[in-house]
Design a protein around this nucleic acid. Structure first.
Lengths: 115, 115
DNA sequence: ATCGTTAATCGTCAATCTACGATATGATCG
DNA sequence: CGATCATATCGTAGATTGACGATTAACGAT
């Protein structure tokens, strides 16, 4: 069965025998955010510059505005970035601690910790 | 145009204005491998145990054998694990250095290095 | 109020993902 | 050889992704 009844947009950890390690969903979520080169590029840009208005991001990518906007949405939903409305435009910046959190989750994968 | 002419299974870095940082594809590829909770769980299991035969992995997950096999394939293709045929079964283990490489790529994201 | 700019959202299409049962392959045992 | 166990692969259904143009919404300026 392994549902997905419509509550979750992205696959949740399959429930079952193995205790689902809790961190797997979080890890998968953050990993998902980076799992597209365009999103990696956007995050790289933001980490380089600290922050950046949407338009500048669009200009730096060979993708349509709508597409970039979608990727920004994914990055926001997965917790990598935040957007702040700044007059008529939106300024994006990396979420503080997201990278650290991700690395922690990776570490917990390695060390078999249960968090 | 931003093609994808069939050579690549997963989205390649969109070509265009911004020099595509090269690492973005690698990073996205590895991230993709972890971007599903089941795959994170499998990798966790392998890192905990060092190695594990396929059947034991299947038994520990609430997924059909075919599905687990598919996830194992993705993990293999993205470079996270290796499988060694061991008599009638297949023994999987984490690829040495994959985690390190992934962390390096993350680091290069943060520091704006170009590799 | 109206216009222009900026960004998000809508609608759509083709491609891909995830899940599964069924089937094929491969090795070992009797 | 034939039966059996362990995995991989095939085929398929349904959901989701990623791309885009078009539209909408939100703001600031005229």
């Amino acid at each position: 069965m392994v549902d997905r009844i419509g509550l979750l947009k992205r696959p949740a950890s399959p429930r079952g025998r193995r205790v689902p390690a809790k961190g797997d969903d979080d890890l998968a979520g953050l990993a998902w955010g980076l799992a597209h080169p365009a999103r990696a590029a956007i995050l790289r840009l933001l980490l380089e510059r600290g922050e950046c208005v949407c338009g500048a991001i669009v200009d730096s990518m060979p993708l349509a505005q709508a597409t970039v906007s979608q990727h920004l949405k994914v990055l926001k939903e997965t917790g990598w970035i935040e957007g702040e409305i700044d007059g008529p435009r939106v300024c994006y910046c990396p979420t503080a601690g997201a990278m650290t959190r991700f690395k922690q989750l990776l570490q917990s994968l390695e060390s078999g910790e249960r968090r």
